[in-house]
């Protein structure tokens, strides 16, 4: 029975890290099951003792979509490039929802699990990572709703572009994780992050073409506008699913570049702060 543990013990060297910390992906691999369990736990606990349970994963984006439809379609009559507004906005709400979960849960993940951080060793990256992955479950549920909506409004998906959707999903995850890495690490020392989050989420929503089309932004501001990585993600989703927009052009590359920059720098910032987490949290 104990054979499983009878492996040759590996030697670990514990010493102060100098300069840029190595990413130590090996440890992350060893602890891969913990990521699974954390995601599983987050999902399991999230809707416990709620009357509506998993239905909340549907209700939240659906209600937002209804409010948007009333405000921006019925009242403001924003252009949607020929797509019924509910489908138009719901397509954007999918990656946006994922991003918001990552932003909020991910940024608080280290502080929320401070008893784990101060008591045991495990790669700290697991905490923001699993928060982001847990958001994927809601994403999948909401995706089913989108399919139903598209049927209802008789919107034909852009079959020839659909294969790019996983790529845009990956981009959404990278962006969300990148921001979560930065904010969670900062939050350990500066709880200002907690205060700024609601405001940041709101501001970011307005800066992203979720409720409106990116075409309303004038030509000369386009590149600047797409410095917001979520703008690229949302536009990409619409392009891949609905076939609207220009497809990959300079604006998408700008967004993607920023996403990757945030992600890589986030990884290194997180790793370099990691050694002080247990002392400062």
């Amino acid at each position: 029975m104990t054979e499983i543990t009878k492996h040759e013990p590996t030697t670990v060297y514990i010493k102060p890290t100098k300069g840029l910390a190595a990413l130590n992906l090996r440890d992350l691999w060893i602890y891969r099951e913990l990521i699974f369990f954390m995601v599983w736990r987050d999902v399991k606990v999230k809707y416990k003792q709620t009357l509506l349970g998993m239905a909340w994963a549907v209700i939240q984006p659906l209600m937002t979509m209804l409010v948007f439809t009333f405000l921006f379609d019925r009242v403001a009559k924003l252009p949607t490039e020929g797509i019924p507004y509910p489908v138009f906005s719901f397509t954007a709400l999918l990656p946006w929802g994922l991003f918001v979960v990552a932003l909020n849960q991910g940024s608080r993940s280290l502080v929320a699990h401070n008893n784990m951080v101060t008591k045991i060793y495990f790669p700290r990256l697991i905490l923001p990572m699993s928060s982001v992955f847990a958001g994927l479950v809601d994403f999948v549920i909401a995706f089913v709703i989108l399919v139903i909506l598209m049927f209802y409004y008789q919107v034909t998906p852009a079959w020839n572009l659909l294969w790019t959707l996983p790529l845009f999903l990956l981009l959404a995850i990278i962006t969300a994780l990148g921001v979560a890495l930065w904010l969670s690490a900062i939050n350990v020392q500066y709880r200002d992050v907690n205060q700024a989050l609601p405001f940041l989420t709101q501001f970011w929503l307005f800066a992203t073409p979720v409720a409106y089309s990116a075409t309303v932004i004038s030509e000369k501001w386009q590149v600047l506008y797409f410095l917001n990585p979520m703008a690229g993600v949302v536009n990409g989703f619409r392009w891949a699913l609905l076939g609207i927009g220009n497809g990959p052009d300079i604006t998408l590359w700008v967004s993607t570049g920023i996403s990757i920059l945030i992600f890589i720098s986030g990884l290194f910032y997180f790793r370099s702060m990691e050694k002080t987490f247990a002392d400062t949290i």
């Binding site: 514990i14 060793y121 050694k275 002392d279």
Partner: peptide, 19 residues
């Protein structure tokens, strides 16, 4: 805490064989 890798030492080194 140092031995269980929760926190890093400021100086010096520890080698630990096994979990």
């Amino acid at each position: 805490k140092i031995l269980s890798r929760v926190t890093e030492p400021t100086i010096g080194m520890v080698s630990v064989r096994g979990r």
